[in-house]
């Protein structure tokens, strides 16, 4: 083997070893709750929903207001979550995580047959309940919520030179239906600053 060819081969092998077999742009799986997700300045990322939900759930549970319900788990309905950001977002990204966490805590069950503006989440359950009551010749019994959850998403954008800063504010209120009083309220903010989106934190 000629020395020049051997040296080239060795260099190529070393380069392959150093880079691994994957190229940088290959698609790969990353942990949705891990620190290697994409951070973008212009949108609410998966980790933002997660962190906001986590802080708000912790705040709600620490407030001990759920213990005041006459029976546990208390029934909660999700009311309107206003989106005042510039983005088209599905607010379920926040509320579903909160619902799941509260459900796992054993403190809250969410009704899926009542919704804001008469829009029910589970129409089949609502219709079946009505049908069942009709067939039995009874008046339909609807479990009314003890609590309602409402909120708002806000966005604030500022720029200094080439650096952009975006703050997303997640506000939630828990209201007792019987008196219309917000027994728990909190907000959490997530601020991102930079010149462009990046992978990892």
């Amino acid at each position: 083997m000629k020395p020049k060819f051997a040296a080239t081969l060795a260099a190529a092998a070393l380069a392959l070893l150093a880079t691994g077999c994957a190229t940088k742009n290959d698609a790969k799986y990353v942990d949705s709750q891990g620190p290697n997700t994409i951070v973008s300045l212009n949108s609410i990322n998966i980790q933002d929903w997660n962190n906001a939900a986590d802080k708000l759930v912790a705040s709600l549970l620490e407030s001990n207001v759920l213990e005041r319900a006459p029976s546990l788990p208390a029934v909660m309905a999700v009311s309107r979550i206003r989106n005042n950001t510039q983005q088209q977002v599905d607010t379920d990204a926040l509320t579903k995580k909160i619902r799941v966490a509260l459900n796992k805590s054993g403190k809250i069950v969410t009704t899926t047959t009542l919704g804001a503006d008469g829009k029910v989440e589970d129409a089949v359950a609502a219709d079946s309940g009505a049908m069942q009551a009709f067939m039995a010749g009874e008046k339909q019994k609807t479990t009314l919520p003890y609590y309602t959850l409402s909120g708002k998403l806000l966005e604030d954008r500022v720029r200094s030179g080439s650096t952009q800063q975006t703050t997303y504010t997640f506000q939630l209120s828990l209201t007792t239906v019987k008196d219309g009083l917000a027994v728990w309220e909190d907000e959490t903010q997530i601020t991102k600053q930079g010149q462009r989106s990046s992978v990892g934190w």
Binding site: Q33, P35, Q47, D54, K97, V100, A101, W201
Partner: peptide, 8 residues
């Protein structure tokens, strides 16, 4: 944990 995950 539904809202677990790494936090900064």
């Amino acid at each position: 944990a539904p809202t677990g995950g790494w936090k900064q």
